[in-house]
Simulated assay, not measured.
Amino acid sequence: MNQGLPLDFEQQIDQGHTAWTMGKFTEAVKHLTPMMEVAHLNPGAFVDNERGSAAVQKGLIALALSHNGIGDESAARATIGEILRTFPNEKMSAGTYGMAANKLFESVRLDLAGRGKGRLVIKPANAGGVVYLNERIDGVGTRTKDQLLPGEYRVMLQTGAQISRSHTVKLAANEDLTLTVDGGFDDAVRTKADWTGLGFASAADREKSEASYAATFGKSINATAVALIGIDVSNGRPSVIAALVKRDTGGELRRASIPLDASPSRDQLRGLARFLAGEDAGPGIEIHVAKPAKPEARVPDATVTTGEPAEPERPAEQPTTSGRWGGWKWMAS
């Protein structure tokens, strides 16, 4: 799981860079490779952080040339490709880095451009969001990038103080892709080592968006079915409640519960799962009227995978009666 940037991130970059300047290429690779990996896992750390971005640029150049120094041209070319996509104004001039480095850099640039450039349209779900492409500000609102070199790109959206998850787009040569980024959905998704689900700031937010977000989540991982499972108060009693959600609209297909007057048996829980799968309800399972999708609801297609989100702690809460799932705002999907 993502643990954030190390406190000595810039110092580690400096150490790797120094090793490269001294010709200690293997040592430089050992220092810089994990730093570049952790940087890509923490794109939000570079929002409004020019110093951090400069450290990444410095580290990538030293890493590319260190790979080349130990004879790993394939790794050197891959790293230069990342430099070209993230820092398109970088020239790796012969005056600064030498003729051999400049020749390699230009060879990679011409090779990638010769394959054919791609087109990426980035559409914020809400107008006014600031779009970041490979951790660098690209602009506000819908962005159309017509001349992108093929390869991997990371996209984030900032709306006010809210930063979305990082979306990874693998753009092929001559490919045309559209990515819609919903900051609200990204903020609701919670992933931890032992739990994945949706979290909302209020019962009203959950009632408005939970089912459609669950359907969007299902689409993003190519799930054939989506179910919401949680604990709520039903008919005055704490209950395990489950609903099968339509992937296209977020409306419910089936909904049932098991009262928690006593711990439910394994057979009851399996029976609840079988009910969602289309079988008749067994003993101890209460059937509810499934809630339709809201009139305006339409779940967008997921076109890319999402990166690591922030990991707020799951709060301890007690069930109360309000909204779709009562007071429990943490639901697994």
Results as ranks from 00 to 15, higher is better:
residue 1 M to N: 11
residue 4 G to L: 14
residue 9 F to I: 14
residue 12 Q to N: 13
residue 13 I to F: 11
residue 26 T to G: 14
residue 39 A to M: 02
residue 42 N to D: 04
residue 42 N to E: 11
residue 44 G to H: 01
residue 50 E to L: 11
residue 61 I to W: 03
residue 62 A to I: 08
residue 67 H to F: 13
residue 70 I to Y: 07
residue 76 A to S: 15
residue 78 A to K: 15
residue 81 G to E: 13
residue 85 R to M: 09
residue 91 K to G: 04
residue 98 G to M: 11
residue 98 G to L: 13
residue 102 N to F: 09
residue 104 L to W: 10
residue 115 R to T: 04
residue 116 G to Y: 03
residue 117 K to Y: 03
residue 123 K to I: 14
residue 127 A to Y: 00
residue 136 R to D: 08
residue 141 G to I: 11
residue 156 M to D: 02
residue 159 T to H: 03
residue 164 S to E: 00
residue 187 D to F: 03
residue 190 R to T: 04
residue 190 R to A: 06
residue 191 T to S: 09
residue 195 W to I: 05
residue 205 D to C: 00
residue 206 R to Y: 00
residue 209 S to L: 12
residue 209 S to W: 07
residue 213 Y to M: 07
residue 215 A to T: 01
residue 216 T to F: 08
residue 221 I to S: 06
residue 226 V to C: 07
residue 235 N to P: 00
residue 239 S to R: 02
residue 241 I to N: 00
residue 242 A to L: 05
residue 247 R to P: 01
residue 247 R to M: 02
residue 249 T to S: 13
residue 251 G to W: 02
residue 252 E to S: 01
residue 253 L to K: 07
residue 255 R to P: 00
residue 257 S to G: 01
residue 269 L to S: 05
residue 287 I to M: 09
residue 289 V to S: 12
residue 294 K to Q: 07
residue 297 A to I: 06
residue 304 V to W: 01
residue 307 G to Q: 15
residue 311 E to Q: 15
residue 319 P to Q: 09
residue 331 M to R: 07
residue 333 S to L: 08
